[in-house]
Computed example of a mutant assay.
Amino acid sequence: MRQEPQHTGRDESEEERADRMWGELIQEVRVAQTGVQILFGFLLTVVFQPKYARLPDADQVIYIVTVVLGACATGALIGPVSLHRLVAGRRVKPRAVRLAARMTFVGLVLLLATMASSLLLILRVATHDAYVPWLVAAVVVWYLVCWYGLPLWARRRHAGSDD
């Protein structure tokens, strides 16, 4: 008795897949974009606070690094929107989706670094305690588990699946 081939995955063309993946990517970027823009906006106001001038040099350097990281994260997470706008109608959507996905991944890495350095600065100013780097490291490990570890584990666990 002959067995029917099992249907796995979606029955879609490369263009249909690119359309679907673009929609999913933009939804994901909206979440990250909002977070990074709010964080970046708050970071931009810190330098105008009277207490900023009294910060030790090390904390001012952490602040500058944090602002630059936030600016880079913002650029990487807004990049897919600009990419889509500039290549729309040029029949390059599958390639554009792959490039936008890479920009989004880089943006998320930069967002993680921005959040970690923001947390380091805030906790250093708020507590001046020696446990601050350990606390920040624990939060970074948590981010790594949530943002990369669990998704990679799920991908690996279902590696036999299509897509």
Rank of each mutant, 00 (worst) to 15 (best):
A159P: 00
V141H: 04
P151Y: 14
L120K: 11
R157T: 12
A137P: 08
H158N: 14
V132S: 02
V141D: 00
Y131I: 02
L119T: 13
Y143I: 01
A138I: 03
V141A: 15
A126H: 05
W147T: 01
A138E: 06
R124L: 04
W153P: 00
R156I: 04
V136C: 03
R155F: 10
A154P: 02
H158P: 00
L119H: 11
L119A: 14
T127I: 00
I122N: 12
H158S: 09
L152H: 12
P133K: 07
W142N: 06
L144S: 09
L150Q: 08
L119S: 12
G160D: 12
L144D: 04
V141M: 10
P133Y: 06
W153A: 10
L135F: 15
L135A: 13
W134K: 04
W142T: 13
I122T: 14
T127A: 11
R155K: 10
L135Y: 15
V125S: 08
P151M: 09
T127L: 13
A138F: 13
A154H: 10
V140Y: 02
A130F: 09
L150H: 07
A159L: 08
I122K: 12
C146V: 13
V139E: 09
V141P: 01
C146H: 03
Y131S: 07
A137R: 02
A159R: 15
W142Y: 10
P151L: 08
D129E: 15
Y143G: 04
G149V: 08
V145G: 02
R155H: 07
G160S: 10
W134T: 08
V145F: 03
W142F: 11
V139G: 07
V132A: 03
H158V: 05
L120Y: 15
A126M: 05
V136D: 06
W153D: 00
L150A: 12
V140H: 02
W134Q: 05
A137L: 14
H128I: 01
R155E: 12
L121H: 10
T127M: 08
G149F: 11
P151E: 12
R156W: 15
Y131Q: 05
Y148D: 00
Y143E: 03
V125P: 02
R155V: 03
L121A: 07
A138Y: 07
W153Y: 15
V139Y: 13
W142E: 04
W134C: 01
W134G: 11
A154Y: 11
V145A: 06
D129C: 01
V140K: 00
V140F: 05
H128V: 07
P133E: 05
V132F: 02
A126K: 15
R157K: 14
A130M: 03
W147H: 03
H158I: 06
D129Q: 12
G149D: 12
